[in-house]
């Protein structure tokens, strides 16, 4: 019998790839433009990583409702953190923090992305129902899921390294301009 990739497995892989893309864009601005992330920016990255972990659990351990709950909880945490930073720079005349992408600051994009992930999970549930496959499956294409896992794990490790270099063993400056350990 020919094997068919469950739609939810593909969507979870795409979800993790999307989170990896967000982390890559953040890293691009950090490395290529020298914009060091502020503490709230770092916490938003940690939130996105926690979202990605939920997708990763579905890919590696099989699909579970609790894994989707993890994605939703992490999305809410990320959304609240980014909403806080949006609120800090909401006043008229405030230039905001950091550079912009398509006219919006990255913390605003983080809020949009966090809400987008919640909508994405809703879409996964609908598509799963429409495909008629309700039970969880382990991924069939191990090579593809392992490659996505490796990319994500590499980004988590890179974030750990860059945060250690930027903040050392303490808390980061509110407006960091240099790496603490690279003086």
């Amino acid at each position: 019998m020919p094997s068919r990739q469950p739609v939810a497995t593909i969507l979870n892989m795409l979800g993790l790839l999307g989170i990896s893309l967000i982390l890559t864009v953040a890293f691009f601005y950090q490395l290529a433009r020298g914009e060091l992330p502020c503490p709230l920016c770092l916490l938003q990255r940690a939130g996105f990583i926690a979202i990605g972990m939920g997708f990763l659990f579905n890919m590696q351990f099989g699909e579970r409702l609790s894994h989707y709950a993890m994605v939703l909880i992490a999305s809410l945490v990320t959304g609240v953190i980014s909403m806080r930073q949006v609120s800090l720079h909401l006043a008229p005349g405030d230039p905001g923090y950091g550079s912009t992408l398509l006219g919006l600051h990255f913390y605003t994009w983080a809020l949009i992305a966090a809400v987008g992930v919640i909508c994405y999970v809703a879409l996964v549930f609908v598509l799963k129902d429409m495909s008629g496959k309700r039970d969880g499956d382990v991924p069939l294409h191990r090579l593809a899921s392992d490659a996505v896992f490796a990319i994500f794990a590499l980004l988590v490790a890179a974030n750990l390294l860059s945060t250690v270099l930027e903040c050392g063993a303490g808390q980061c400056d509110d407006n960091p301009v240099r790496y603490l350990l690279l003086k």
């Binding site: 916490l43 972990m53 351990f61 988590v156 903040c167 808390q171």
Partner: peptide
Amino acid sequence: MYMFLPFLLALASCACVWRSRAG
């Protein structure tokens, strides 16, 4: 206050996924 701690914990969680230690 260790700012890197969330990332360290997440990386450790990834390592456990790799070793199939779900709990």
